[in-house]
Simulated scan of single mutants.
Amino acid sequence: MARQRFRLKELFQKEPQYYHATFDHITHKINAQKKKIPVVLLTDVYLVNDLDKKIRLVNSNDFKDKKGRHIVADHLWVKLTKPWFSLPTQLVPGDEIFFQASVEQYRIVRSDLLKKRDDIWQQAVKERDQVYKRWAKYTETHKRKNFQLSLDKMKAKQAAILKQAKQEQAQIELVDYSLNKLSKIKIAKLVNVPQDFERGNYNYNWYKRQGYKYSAWLAAHSMELLKK
């Protein structure tokens, strides 16, 4: 989990909150049904109230961006859903919006995190085996007054090592958090665009009729300004 997103983790399964974010661009991802789904990249996401006033966060772990804002995510991918089409104009990179949304949790599969978890376990197994070897070596050369008691203590120490490893593994979560069910999307700030660039409007009926063809055009159009 990205370290800025612990706030989203806290808001998971809670009431929807308001967020402010910067629009980057539209693209597509492939879902489980192998269908192309339009998604939006948002950056510099922070909490606000329903009037778009920034909510001050005071946790020592809160992450600050270059402007000193306590952001809950440096970037998020969200679905391009019906509420987007109610905006009065198409967005271009750098435009800012605020909206209401819920937090969703999703599983992640990252080789680096899996390796960290595996390394923790392998190290624990190594330490467990060393505990036994030390105990066995001492037992061979020394007469123990209470063999069973020493054996039980050794096994308890081994169990504690593995228990600690499992706890450390659990801290490396294979989940992350994002935003879902966006609603009440409003424009906070529009960047200036060249006179020869036409923003255009979103059209939900076109999207319903044309699907990917229309969302692909929106994706290309959202990036067109960067080429100028």
Rank of each mutant, 00 (worst) to 15 (best):
T27Y: 10
W77T: 05
P83V: 04
V72R: 00
N49T: 05
L114S: 08
K34R: 10
S86N: 15
F85C: 05
W135G: 07
R117K: 12
K14C: 06
L76D: 03
D119F: 00
L51V: 11
D95V: 05
K79T: 14
F85M: 05
K34Y: 12
D65L: 07
H28Q: 01
R69T: 10
V48L: 00
S102Q: 11
Q100V: 00
Q122K: 09
Q100H: 03
S111N: 14
P93W: 01
V103C: 02
F63Q: 14
D95R: 05
K54A: 08
Y106S: 02
P83A: 03
N59K: 12
T89C: 06
L51K: 12
D44A: 07
L51I: 03
I55C: 06
D52L: 07
Q130N: 11
A21C: 00
K133H: 11
L91D: 01
D62V: 11
L57M: 13
Q122T: 10
W121K: 12
F85G: 09
K66A: 14
T22N: 07
R107L: 14
D52H: 04
A136C: 09
V58K: 04
P88Y: 10
Y132I: 12
F98V: 05
D65P: 01
Q33K: 10
R110Y: 06
W84A: 00
V78L: 08
H20C: 11
D50N: 10
F98Y: 15
Y18T: 02
L114A: 12
V40K: 05
H25S: 12
S111L: 09
W84V: 02
L51T: 13
N31Q: 02
D118L: 10
A73F: 04
Q105T: 12
D95T: 03
H25Y: 13
V40Y: 03
L42T: 03
D112G: 02
V72F: 11
W135Y: 14
G94V: 07
R69L: 13
F85R: 00
A32C: 08
T43Y: 06
V45Q: 00
V131I: 15
K14W: 03
W135Q: 10
L41H: 00
Y46T: 00
W84L: 03
A101V: 12
L113E: 05
H25D: 08
K36V: 08
D62L: 05
K36D: 13
D44C: 05
S86G: 10
Y19G: 07
L47D: 06
W84K: 01
W121Y: 11
T22F: 04
Y46A: 05
L87T: 11
R134Y: 13
L87F: 05
Q130G: 10
K35S: 11
D74S: 07
A32D: 09
T22Q: 10
D118G: 03
A136V: 15
N31L: 04
K66V: 15
D74G: 06
K29L: 09
A21F: 02
Y18I: 02
D112F: 06
Y19C: 01
L42Y: 02
Q130K: 14
D24G: 03
I37S: 00
V78E: 04
E127D: 12
K66G: 11
